[in-house]
Nucleic acid binder design. Sequence first.
DNA 1: CTACATGCAAACCGTTTGCACCCTA
DNA 2: TAGGGTGCAAACGGTTTGCATGTAG
Lengths: 136, 136
Amino acid sequence: MEFEKELRKNGLKNTPHRTRIMEVLESYEVPVSAQDIYERLKEDKVRISLSTVYRTLDKLVALDFVRKLSFTGEDSALFESIRKGHRHYLVCLRCRKKTVIDKCPIKEYQETLERETDFSIEGHKLAIYGYCPACK
Amino acid sequence: MEFEKELRKNGLKNTPHRTRIMEVLESYEVPVSAQDIYERLKEDKVRISLSTVYRTLDKLVALDFVRKLSFTGEDSALFESIRKGHRHYLVCLRCRKKTVIDKCPIKEYQETLERETDFSIEGHKLAIYGYCPACK
DNA sequence: CTACATGCAAACCGTTTGCACCCTA
DNA sequence: TAGGGTGCAAACGGTTTGCATGTAG
């Protein structure tokens, strides 16, 4: 398994907690907070502490299994599995609901920018804000 | 003066502190933190507290004189004057230096999205990350 | 059996808030 | 002179960390 192998390669251990956290991340269609993951695991009767969730997320982000996001108006960081692919969100400023934007409007521009600026570009963060049909 | 008038219209007072904070924001070419503003004012021998800086920034953001930004890897929020115009930044992941991107690659897409989704779109946040010529 | 992983509680740190006093309009 | 503004210190809340113990390899 890719996940297990990647952990080993970095001197990390493949513990039940790590697998569970990855599973929770993949079970959600939208980004979730460390707290969300913690509560979800509690419901599933998993004995875990919030700090383990944070420590695990740090590692999953470093290994590039997970992406860390932050949104205006959201008080905590949110996380999602990289396996969801490259995505951006349209966020309702009132109800906070997030809608996936499948097309990335930056991709080409980013390549142009790399040619024009001498930077080596690694990526970008984009979120679009507005009011959803129900809230506007 | 536009600034003074806008404050009054919202039942706010035009104090020396508020003017100073606006001036500091306009004197920087890149976004700055509340702490940066506080320290800059201290250097200028202004007697002010950090909480006043935060409270003022909140109000300036609400009145749309100031934009609040957050960047990956930056531990605190950054602020810039709206008068700088609509901009995005190319951020070096190593030295943290920010380079202004004058062209907005989202504008047209945002209009398309508004037509396609039934959302009323208010704006967007974009930052591009990479390594600058000196750091890469 | 050794190094990494974890739980717990405390520390951290950017930001917010309560309150008494100050100052603008 | 009334109501917003400010300084100070304490509170807040998400996140991190120290330490003793547990467990994967």
